[in-house]
């Protein structure tokens, strides 16, 4: 399928908004504002995502990876999603969006 590189649906900001539907249920915060998405790139109809988790051994890993794939595949005209799980740099609370830090009791956390 031909894709238009200027298609607003494929703009990284729009795709990140889509990923805000996917939450970490333990914290009740979406994975974008939590700072778990390290990189998102679009190549034609393929989206490449580099993401991490708050901790190694996070029991929600499979669910969240699956959620990222499903959420992005629902966006027209995305046809392929590649999720790469990375641990470098390790996630830390300063990667959270400032507006959600307070929700987990981290008002003084600086980015």
């Amino acid at each position: 399928m031909e894709t238009n590189p200027t298609d607003p649906a494929l703009h990284p900001d729009a795709l990140l908004d889509t990923l805000r539907e996917v939450i970490d249920p333990e914290l009740g915060i979406n994975i974008v504002d939590l700072g778990l998405i390290y990189d998102l790139a679009v190549e034609g109809a393929k989206v490449k995502v580099k993401m991490t988790f708050t901790v190694r051994g996070c029991p929600m890993q499979q669910s969240l990876i699956r959620g990222v794939r499903i959420a992005l595949l629902r966006v027209e005209p995305v046809e392929e999603v590649e999720v790469e799980m990375v641990w470098d740099p390790p996630w830390n609370p300063s990667m959270m969006a400032p507006e959600v830090r307070e929700r987990v009791g981290l008002p003084g956390c600086s980015s």
Binding site: I65, R69, V81, V83, M85
Partner: peptide, 17 residues
């Protein structure tokens, strides 16, 4: 089509019974 590459091998929840 979609794909997932996993640096650490099998995802953790997939390991759970």
């Amino acid at each position: 089509m979609s794909s997932t590459s996993l640096a650490g091998g099998l995802p953790d929840a997939q390991r759970a019974p």
